[in-house]
Simulated assay, not measured.
Amino acid sequence: MSHTAHIRSHRKPRRSASRVAMRAGVAGGVLGTLAVAGTSTSSANAAEPVTQTLELPTLTSDLAAQVAQSAEATEQAAANYRLGAERDAAAANAAKQAKADLADAKKKAEAARKKAEAARKKAADAARKAAAERASRTAERPTLTASASTGGTSTSVSASTGSAAAVISFAKAQVGKAYVLGASGPSAYDCSGLTQAAFKQVGISLPRVSQNQSTAGTQVSLSNLQPGDILYWGGAGSAYHVGIYVGNGMFVGAQNPSTGVVERPLSYDPPSGAVRVL
Rank of each mutant, 00 (worst) to 15 (best):
R8M: 08
R8E: 12
R14A: 13
S18F: 13
A21Y: 11
R23H: 12
R23T: 13
R23I: 14
A24T: 10
A24N: 11
V26L: 15
G29A: 15
G29D: 08
A35N: 02
T39W: 12
S43N: 08
T53V: 15
L54N: 04
S61N: 03
L63K: 03
A64Q: 03
A65T: 10
A65D: 06
A71E: 15
E72K: 14
A73R: 14
Q76L: 14
A77W: 02
A79K: 09
A79F: 05
L83M: 10
G84M: 05
A89H: 07
A90L: 15
A94P: 08
A94N: 14
Q97R: 14
A100P: 02
D101W: 06
A103K: 13
K106N: 15
K107V: 04
A112W: 10
A118P: 03
A124G: 00
K129G: 01
A131Q: 10
A132H: 07
R137L: 08
P142M: 02
P142T: 07
P142K: 05
T143R: 15
L144Y: 02
S149I: 09
G152Q: 10
T153Y: 11
S154W: 01
V157E: 07
S158N: 09
S163R: 10
S163H: 05
I168Y: 02
S169R: 13
S169Q: 13
A178I: 02
A178E: 08
S184Y: 04
P186Y: 02
S187F: 03
G193R: 01
F199K: 08
K200E: 13
Q201K: 14
V202S: 08
S205N: 15
Q211Y: 10
Q211W: 04
Q213G: 01
T215F: 04
T218Y: 03
Q219T: 14
S221R: 03
S223E: 04
N224C: 00
L225G: 01
Q226L: 06
P227M: 03
G234V: 08
G237L: 08
G237N: 09
S238F: 10
A239C: 10
V242I: 07
G243N: 00
I244S: 00
I244N: 02
Y245N: 01
V246P: 01
G249D: 07
F251H: 11
Q255H: 11
P257T: 06
S258D: 06
P265G: 10
P265K: 09
P265Y: 03
Y268F: 15
D269E: 09
P271Y: 07
V277H: 03
L278C: 13
